[in-house]
Computed example of a mutant assay.
Amino acid sequence: MDKLVFLKERKLLGKRIAQLRNNCINEITGKKISQEELALRLGLAKNHIGLIERGKTNTTVDVLYGIAKEFREEIISLFDFEKTEKDA
C-alpha cells in the first residue's frame, strides 16, 4: 500500500472514531464521552485516543475492538470512511 494512502486512511479512521465518540452519551452523566473517559474505559493512557483520532499513531486490533465495543458497534463500522467524509 502506498504510504500516502495509508496515512490518509489512518486519519479517516481517527475522524470516524471521533465522530462515533461524539455521538456516544455517558448514561450516567448524560454528556458526550470524552477522549479521556474512553481511554480510561479501555485501560489506555489519557492521550492515546487523541493520537488515534488525529491519525498520529497506529493502534492494535484489540484497541479498535474495544473502541467499537464501547460504542456498541461492529468493528467494521470504524472503517465506514464514506460516512465520515459525508458528515465532515
Rank of each mutant, 00 (worst) to 15 (best):
Q35L: 07
Y65K: 05
H48D: 09
L51V: 00
I49N: 09
E9R: 07
T29Q: 07
I28C: 02
F79E: 03
I75W: 03
T29W: 01
I52G: 01
I75R: 04
E37M: 07
Q19P: 02
K86H: 14
R41N: 10
L44C: 13
V61P: 02
E27S: 09
G55M: 01
E53V: 05
D2L: 12
D62G: 04
D62V: 06
G50F: 11
N58E: 14
N47I: 13
A39Y: 08
R10P: 00
E9V: 05
T60I: 12
F71L: 06
E37C: 06
F81H: 04
T59C: 06
N47M: 11
R54G: 14
L42N: 07
L38N: 08
I33T: 08
L20Y: 03
L12D: 06
K56I: 03
D87S: 15
L13I: 07
E74Q: 14
D80T: 03
K32W: 05
T84F: 00
E85Q: 13
E53R: 01
I28W: 00
E70P: 01
S34Y: 01
I33E: 02
I25F: 04
D80M: 10
L40V: 12
N26G: 02
F79P: 00
K11Q: 12
E85P: 01
N58R: 12
E73M: 09
K86V: 15
R21S: 13
L20W: 01
N26F: 09
G14D: 05
N23W: 04
R41V: 04
N47S: 15
R16Y: 02
L42M: 07
A39F: 05
T59P: 05
K8Q: 11
R72F: 11
E27V: 08
K8F: 10
F81K: 01
L51Q: 15
I76L: 06
F79L: 02
A45H: 07
N58C: 10
I67D: 03
K56T: 00
K69D: 12
T59E: 02
L44M: 15
K46R: 15
E82P: 05
G43P: 01
K69Q: 13
E27R: 13
A68T: 08
V61M: 13
Q19R: 13
M1A: 09
I49C: 08
L51W: 10
I33L: 12
A88T: 14
L51P: 00
E9F: 11
A39T: 11
L40H: 14
E37P: 07
F71Q: 03
V63R: 02
R16G: 03
L12W: 03
I75M: 07
E74G: 12
Q35S: 14
E73Q: 13
L12F: 08
E53H: 06
K32N: 08
E53S: 00
Y65E: 07
K32A: 10
L7S: 12
I75T: 04
F71M: 09
K31R: 12
E70R: 06
K46P: 13
D2I: 10
F71S: 03
L64Y: 04
E9M: 11
L38Y: 09
T57V: 11
Q19V: 02
L64S: 05
V61C: 09
G66K: 04
A68K: 03
L20A: 02
